[in-house]
Every structure is written in structure tokens, then in C-alpha cells.
Amino acid sequence: ELTQDEIQLLQYVMESYNKNRMPQDLTSKLIENLSTDDNFIFLTTMATSHVQILVEFTKKIPGFQTLDHEDQIALLKGSAVEAMFLRSAELFNKKLLDSHTDVLEERIWNSGISHDYINPMFSFYKSVGELKMTEEEYALLTAVVILTPDRQFLKDKESVEKLQESFLHILEKLCKQHHPNNPQHFARLLGRLTELRTFSHHHTDMVMSWRVS
């Protein structure tokens, strides 16, 4: 069972996670028919908005503000792309786009982005979907992604590790509560983090190839 402190920490994170979502007027544009140029600009705006929302969420993670300012930037820079793919996986799997995911999926396939990049993305969404994650699990996993202690340029790895451990601990307990018949659930969630890292590596190439195309 969660301790009183852990319950409070979880409540705090959930409140912030739910408050910091993509604005409705922006997500509703996802299903509009845009020209290729407008589509590119729109997705750039989406990505920018995602980063702003991610920062707002991260600011509220207990302990984050106590970290060195440059370390805060190193953590956010290192995790932005991974957090974006995790959030997209949640959008797709929980049908948060008012069941317009099919339209969006088709647009992504026809966007001009090489299918070599799109295939692993949808395969990731599918593998995340199979885990049947709860909202708490998505929020905590996002916090764990942000508080990764081996990001480039991070100075005080020890403090970040301590913060990350407290969230990993709560996540592990929740996994046991939510999925009592699946003792491997927690390990599988962590496995998805490894997959997320590969997106971070390929993201720049993907955007570049898209821009050229």
C-alpha cells in the first residue's frame, strides 16, 4: 500500500498532469484538412505547445524546483521528445481525440514523413496500448522519463536519481495494485522507456527528412 506521503505526492502529480493538457482549440485542428505547408506549421506549433505544457507539468513535480537551473534545462531538453511520444501514445490509446484517431493516423501516413519512421511509432503506440496503462501510470512514467539521471550535461545526477526513485517506487506499488495478475507489468513499463529512447535518437533525422521532402 502507498504511504500517506506517497498518496499526497501522487495526488499532486495527477492534479498537475490533468491541468496541463493540450488546449482543445489546438487538438481540434488535428482533424482539419490542411495544406502540406500549413500542416508543417501546425505540427510545429503543436510541438512548441507540447514543450510549454511539459515544462508547466515539470515545474510542479515536487523537488524539481530545488534542482540547479541548468540541470532543470538539461532534464527537459533530454526528455522533451520522449515525453511527447509518450503523451501521443496516451492520446492514441485512450481515444482522447474523440475517436478521430483514425483520421489523424491516415494524415500521419500521408504526411510525407518516411514510413521507416512512422512504422516504429505506431508499433510503439500499440505496444503501450497492450499494457492497458491507467492515467496514474502515464503521469508517473512521464515524471520518471523527465527525471532520468543520465541525461547529457546533467551535473547533479545523484539528486535527480533520488527524485526519480521516489516516483519509480510509487509506480511499482501502483502496478501491483492495478495489475495483480500481471507481476511483469512494472518491468514491461520500464521496457517501454528503452523503446522511447530510440525515438529520441531518430527524431532529428525524421524531422529533417520531412522538411526536405
Partner: peptide, 21 residues
């Protein structure tokens, strides 16, 4: 426009809480 900013600029501005500036 925001689309011309790099990732680090966006993060710095958002952290400072003055993204609209």
C-alpha cells in the same frame, strides 16, 4: 514566432514563465 525558436529557447522561456514575451 515560437516555431522559429529552438527547443532550449522554448524551455528557458517556459521555465521563466514569460513565454509570451
Amino acid at each position: 514566432p515560437a516555431s522559429n525558436l529552438g527547443l532550449e529557447d522554448i524551455i528557458r522561456k517556459a521555465l521563466m514563465g514569460n513565454f509570451d514575451d
